[in-house]
Design a binder for these strands. Structure first.
Lengths: 196, 196
DNA sequence: CAGCTGACAGATTTCAATATCTGTCAGCTG
DNA sequence: CAGCTGACAGATATTGAAATCTGTCAGCTG
């Protein structure tokens, strides 16, 4: 039995929901399962989340925010912009690839969740392209990057051009042998385009 | 009733199969349906295609070959390589977008088929990147493009970097308003990388 | 006798009855 | 009385029996 003594918080419900999703998968994870895992009635879960969809959305947001957090440090680092750009994209790729490779079923679960929660995903992507924009801005200011079409537009183009290495729809191909070489080839091309 | 007088050929079976797929969708299209559409018994269909999977694979190949054919003309054209590159990628994007937009259900059907037939899709992609390689080679020879990492590697990088504008997994986003600007931004970046 | 048919076995899909889940709320409990 | 429970109505999912489909092949037909 789960600890019934502690008070029920949104945080504890989210943790239990992640565990239930991990165990049962997205199709079979029910609110009743979450309540059972917490040793409460399912009515109590609805006190913190209005609907099952809202609960799943919150779990999705938590998951995506973890990735954003990992990358924020690279944006803030005091290094030359080209190295930061390469590091940022390589870290994003490595993080996604690790998650997809280590636990494919859990990754598939999160792919279902992101498919359900377009708004949360759009906000996440806006967050990521915002981080990229700051790196591009730093590059233009320092003179390392050519001005081009404006930092925001360039950052978005960089994000789109590297989709193959962070978009979950390509997850299957991240295990293929040539993928590292493919990533390097695209990165080299893009860096060449940016240089002043 | 369909014309029973004509002899049954692989070609006629493929046409009927496309029609059945269009009408019933990939999940409900059966070999019996195809046979009925042709006014023959389903045993006759198995005389030309060993399995249902082989029949669907042949339909997939036919469909993909049509796109390849459209693009081959641009590769052969006698124009400057940068214009040919832009035209080739823009035409690929436009063709995919048109197919996805005009008949979304049929496009969804073909997405299912391509998902089933990895080998045929890989051959199609090898064909497309081969075409791109020839354009890049022409550019390097004429001095318009910098040599870079070799035409094959560069062509593959260009194909990967523009995935957002031809990979079916992005089909939903091809109807969004900013998509043309996104395409132009990525193209401009890539062309900048190529210029000598 | 080349090409087609149609009956067949085993695999797969459909459908309707049955069970479970979602979201609400009146009332219990500490 | 704030927070939780558990019964409930309607929606959704599961299940297993019946229907259909796939792939084969012996025999028919022009």
């Amino acid at each position: 039995m789960a600890p019934t003594s502690e008070i029920l918080t949104a945080e504890r419900i989210l943790e239990a929901t992640e565990e239930v999703l991990r165990r049962h998968g997205p199709a079979k994870a029910t609110v009743v399962d979450v309540a059972r895992a917490l040793g409460v009635s399912h009515g109590s879960v609805y006190r913190h989340f209005r609907t099952k969809a809202a609960l799943r959305e919150a779990v999705t947001k938590r998951w995506l925010d973890r990735t954003s957090g990992e990358l924020a440090g690279i944006v803030a680092a005091d290094r030359d912009p080209e190295a930061r750009l390469r590091d940022w994209l390589a870290t994003l790729f490595a993080a996604k690839r690790r998650k997809a490779g280590e636990d494919p079923e859990l990754f598939a679960t999160y792919m279902v969740l992101t498919g359900e929660n377009g708004t949360v995903v759009r906000e996440h992507i806006a967050d990521l392209t915002g981080q990229l924009t700051r790196i591009v801005e730093a590059g233009v200011e320092s003179g390392a990057f050519a001005a081009g079409a404006g930092p925001g537009t360039t950052a978005l183009a960089l994000f789109h051009a590297t989709g193959r290495f962070h978009d979950p729809c390509y997850a299957r191909e991240w295990e293929e042998p040539g993928i590292e070489a493919d990533f390097t080839a695209v990165m080299d091309l893009l860096v060449r385009a940016l240089r002043a």
